[in-house]
Amino acid sequence: MQPLVKMTDIRVEFSGRLILDSICLELEKGQITTLIGPNGAGKSTLIKVLLGLQTKYTGQIEKQKRLRIGYVPQKLHLNETFPLNVERFLQLAGKFSHQERVDSLRLVGAEYLLKSNMHKLSGGENQRVLLARALLQRPDLLVLDEPAQGVDVQGQIDLYNLIESIRKRFGCAILMVSHDLHLVMAKTDQVICIHHHVCCSGAPEAITKHPSYIALFGEHKGESLAFYRHHHHGHHDLAGNPVEGEAETCENQKHGHCHHD
Rank of each mutant, 00 (worst) to 15 (best):
I174W: 00
E80K: 15
A206W: 09
H255C: 06
G70S: 08
I23T: 07
E28R: 13
E13K: 03
K120A: 13
G37N: 05
G109T: 05
G155W: 11
L216C: 08
T208N: 01
E205D: 13
S212M: 14
M1C: 08
I61R: 07
F89K: 05
V49L: 05
D145E: 09
L216F: 10
S224I: 08
H260S: 09
Q2P: 11
G124M: 06
C250Q: 08
R229M: 09
E80Y: 15
F89Y: 15
L131G: 05
S178V: 01
L225M: 10
E125P: 01
D152S: 11
K63R: 15
A173E: 01
V72G: 02
S22T: 12
R106C: 03
S22W: 02
S165P: 01
L181K: 06
R66I: 04
E100A: 13
L27A: 01
R229N: 08
R101C: 03
A110P: 03
M7I: 10
Q127T: 06
Q156E: 13
H259T: 15
I192Y: 03
N39Y: 08
K75R: 12
D158H: 12
A173S: 07
L144M: 04
L162G: 00
L136W: 09
I69Q: 12
E251Y: 13
L113E: 04
L107F: 04
R101D: 00
Q2N: 14
D152W: 14
P73E: 04
H220Q: 11
H119D: 11
V12R: 02
H255F: 15
V102S: 10
V198D: 01
Q74Y: 09
Y57N: 02
R169Y: 05
S212K: 15
Q149I: 13
R106V: 06
V153K: 09
M7G: 03
H182K: 15
T45N: 04
L121Q: 04
H77I: 13
G123L: 09
H119W: 07
V12C: 04
S212N: 13
D140M: 04
L18A: 08
A148E: 14
Q31W: 11
H195S: 10
G202H: 04
V129Q: 05
Q253E: 11
E62S: 12
Q190W: 14
L4Q: 03
L113H: 10
L131E: 03
L27Q: 00
